[in-house]
Design a binder for these strands. Structure first.
Lengths: 190, 190
DNA sequence: CGCCACCCATGACATCTGTCATCCCCGGTT
DNA sequence: AACCGGGGATGACAGATGTCATGGGTGGCG
């Protein structure tokens, strides 16, 4: 519904045509190939592929296509990964609607559009300090699983799970796994 | 941005006029009083007042005004509370856009519009089994606070916090507080 | 009045978590 | 060859968490 609404909004702009829409991240590339298109507008949270993964894919397969990421959550880590994925713009949904059409036009002129506040936050936070396994264990723990369940699910020993969670807790500056999950999620590290 | 986009979408319908928009729940009543309006379209997650609280307020102050709740999360508890707040319709955002205008028209004709799948889920789940205090403690624990912090924040003893969390864990069928939070949130009990 | 639900608390107990020291293996770097 | 970071593991320990029994206070309801 939101996607259709945004399409309606952009359709009101005289110089913008919405030529294709898909509901899933893994349908983006096919659609972009099937239709001549200048700019792809991607959400991050999507079924199939995330917008960040889809952006990287588009960058590789169709380098001329501009990519704009539009997301609900302005998390520094998201912005960082969006830039690494080769996105041309990064917008948050609580910005005024006028900014969206504006960003699309700027991107087409070759500019990059990034919220300065967010850019500062992303730079201040530094890179994701979590190793692959720490991130995997922390992510898996988010639903309230116990150490034993995590160990079984990830094919690790109980103690190893505890060790990874312990380092993740320290790196996030949290005082237990739940807080660590919250902080890491906030920063877009998961 | 989403609100403006939805307004654009509805504006395309010939028989619908978007006469007012506000960004916060606590501005809804004033706006509804200032402008002659037939239907209020409310999100649940809003700053100031939630859409559910705003709906109850509108029902009391302006009984003739129809109220439609539009939310991202189709949680049974949300639907239940929406109905208790006197809402005339309950929609989820991942429904097709056409359903929105359709629901507004139906509501104006005096119908109530509710997703049947969701209605079944809400009835199957039964009412919220958590007491006020259990809900408060569980909600407060969601950010990863320790028992000691919860006790200080809620002016309770450490042991009482543990007791409330324990009963909440059992009522949700969870095996620790984190899982209890997830389950209760899923059902819309928080 | 008795019953019950809810609120608040204590103490005891078993288990789970978080931390730390220490070890092994591997693949890069210097 | 020496070193380091990452992955994986063990054992020990303190503290946090979850459970249970038990008690007291309040207010509503039959």
């Amino acid at each position: 519904m939101v996607r259709e609404a945004l399409a309606a909004l952009l359709g009101l702009e005289g110089d913008i045509d919405v030529v294709a829409q898909v509901a899933r991240g893994d349908e983006v590339l096919d659609a972009a190939r099937a239709t001549p298109v200048d700019v792809a507008l991607l959400d991050i949270e999507m079924p199939g592929l995330t917008g960040l993964e889809a952006a990287a894919l588009l960058r590789r397969e169709l380098p001329a296509l501009k990519v704009v990421i539009l997301t609900t959550f302005g998390r520094p880590g998201y912005l960082r990964r969006a830039m690494e994925s080769g996105a041309d713009a990064f917008l948050v949904k609580d910005a005024p609607a006028a900014r969206l059409a504006d960003a699309l036009r700027r991107v087409l002129r070759g500019e990059r559009v990034i919220d300065p506040t967010l850019a500062a936050a992303a730079l201040a936070d530094g890179a994701n300090p979590l190793t692959d396994r720490e991130r995997a264990v922390l992510t898996a723990s988010a639903d309230g699983s116990t150490n034993a369940e995590l160990a079984a699910r990830l094919h690790l020993s109980n103690g190893t799970v505890r060790n990874y969670l312990s380092t993740a807790i320290q790196k996030t500056g949290a005082r237990n796994r739940a807080e660590a999950v919250r902080i890491a999620r906030d920063k877009g590290w998961l």
